[in-house]
Amino acid sequence: MSPLKIKKGSTSHSAYNLRPNFSDVIERHTLAVLVENEPGVLARVIGLFSGRGYNIDSLTVAEVDHTGHLSRITIVTSGTPQVIEQIKAQLGRIVPVHEVHDLTVEGPSVERELAMFKVSGTGDKRVEALRLADIFRANVVDSTLETFVFEITGAPEKIDAFAELMRPLGLKDVARTGVAALPRGD
């Protein structure tokens, strides 16, 4: 489990807060779900969300522990506190799910997303795009005489902001990975 820095057995205390105070406010939560890397496991998780009418704002998945056959799914979802609790409980009962962590309530965490932007333009617009990319620490990973492909990593809000700025400057295409997140500290 070392590459994940997730303490074993912490799930029952953290993810299933059984005595929540329910309100009607829609909250956005980032969940880290550690799953057995077996065929169909992603379909199970996605099927749970679609079948029960929950929202997926973002979802990323990759194997993180090859020898242990574990993948980490990071899901950003939104709902009332009661719905969020239900989502965690429902995820927890999927047989190949090992752990469910609600990073939004389990203390501070860092969230990062990678995105690529294709921006096409000439003259001032092209210069401005490059200047803004510099400010946002986006890298140029491909360029032609008329286009740039920028690569940017950061919190989703930063990427949203960058996208807004690029739009008037000739934004052609966006590819985003979705959020990866880890708790801070130990």
Partner: peptide, 8 residues
């Protein structure tokens, strides 16, 4: 026995 039954 099923945490998802509780508060559902």
């Amino acid at each position: 026995i099923d945490p998802s039954s509780i508060n559902k």
